[in-house]
Amino acid sequence: MPRFMGFVRMEENVGMPPKVLFDAMDEYIGKQTAKGAFLDGGGLFGSEDAVNFISRKGEVSRVDGPYAEAKEVVGGWAITQYDSLEEAIAEQQEFAELHAKYWPEVTVISTMRQISDGPEVPEA
């Protein structure tokens, strides 16, 4: 069964989502969990204590947050599984529509990507 990773991106420092969105998300995630689609997920704190390790030209450097240049941050994530890509897309749209309905003043980007069951090895 294909698995997917979903990300929710938004501008940083927009405040906490309204309680009504939390309530709607609890109901949505409960339904997804009951049918075996929601595997794991959660929200993330802001980038003020984030740490990046950058590998460039054979060297590794550490960059601590917050990141003034960041336009948006990942605010949450989920790992799900569905019988088909079409079902996953439909559910991701429903998830996005909850944000549009209950937090319309904030631009939220809901991204879904299929998880590789690899290893896919490049051809030589």
Rank of each mutant, 00 (worst) to 15 (best):
G41Y: 00
G76T: 01
G65H: 00
V106R: 14
I79S: 02
G6V: 13
Y28R: 13
R3V: 04
G75T: 10
I89Y: 10
A50T: 07
E48V: 02
E12C: 04
I89P: 01
P122I: 05
M25H: 00
A88I: 01
G6C: 09
E11I: 08
H99D: 10
E86N: 15
V60E: 07
V14M: 15
V73W: 07
F22S: 08
A96K: 11
P2Q: 01
Q32R: 08
V106H: 09
G42W: 00
Y82R: 08
A24F: 11
D23S: 12
F22C: 01
D23G: 06
Y102S: 06
A34D: 12
F38Y: 10
E91M: 06
Q32P: 05
E94R: 15
S116N: 07
Y28V: 06
D117L: 11
P17V: 14
F38E: 04
V73M: 14
Q81R: 12
V73C: 04
E86H: 08
D49K: 05
I89N: 10
F95D: 03
K101G: 00
Q93D: 11
D64H: 12
Q114F: 05
K101F: 00
D26Q: 08
L44W: 03
M5I: 08
L39I: 08
F45Y: 14
G76P: 04
N13R: 12
G36Y: 07
N13H: 10
L21W: 08
S110N: 08
T111V: 15
M16S: 15
Y67D: 09
R62A: 08
G46L: 08
A88L: 12
D117A: 10
G6T: 12
V60R: 07
K57W: 01
E105N: 14
F38H: 09
E72V: 09
A34L: 14
E97I: 00
A34M: 06
Q93Y: 06
E11S: 14
F38L: 03
V51I: 14
S110V: 14
V73P: 01
E11D: 12
R9I: 05
I29G: 01
A50Y: 01
